[in-house]
Amino acid sequence: MSGLDFDVSHLLAGGLVLVSFMLLYQTRIYALLNVYAAQAFVLSLAVVWQAFVQDKPHLYATAAVAFLFKAALIPYALHRAIDRLGLRREVENVVGIGATMLAGLACVALAIVVMLRIENEADALAREDLAFALAVILLGLLMMVVRRNVVSMVIGFMSLENGLILAAAGAKGMPLVVEFAVAFSVVVALVVIYVFLFRLQDRFGGVDVGVLEDFQGSRR
């Protein structure tokens, strides 16, 4: 693999991590949606580059799914859900933004430390791609933990899933990547439909997980 291939892959995967960080400090829900769409766009670029470098045409399909579905359709649907259901526009954090960013840094450091331990039997590019992917996954998890708002939890999950697609696309010769991408899109679609269909708003008087806590399953 030539130096340029390597550098562009790194640039795009690194860009994905950077956008994941941007997700962490958004305080407005529309801005959060836009940043998520940007992340999905960067992901589709990264997958297109992998398809080109590995000469695997089926990865173009994965990239197309990522672009159409996650950069366009899902943000649009959530946008409408927020308008229609009159959901709150602010994003409430359980933890302050400064602390969240520090925790995010720790996640990335963890991902790198864990991945660099691995011997160079797998080639360097695959290994470092995995490190970036793991960082995106951990940042997505972090976002799900620090946000109380249902829509931003969903976005946290979707950004976690973007990390998975990056890992699957970077794993050279992995079969079923397109199928995985589609399978996950189905899960994501169901989550979004769930938000629509059951109008968590109507049922709980606000799309905020905190409101649900009077149910407190574990005490019953």
């Binding site: 039997e121 995995l130 799900m144 010769g173």
Partner: peptide, 24 residues
């Protein structure tokens, strides 16, 4: 749904790592 989806995602990452380990 949410816990299972996260679990599904982590399991898939584990599956990808197994594939990476086996690929050589």
């Amino acid at each position: 749904f949410i816990l299972a989806s996260v679990a599904i995602a982590l399991a898939l990452f584990g599956t990808i790592l197994i594939f990476m380990a086996a690929r050589p």
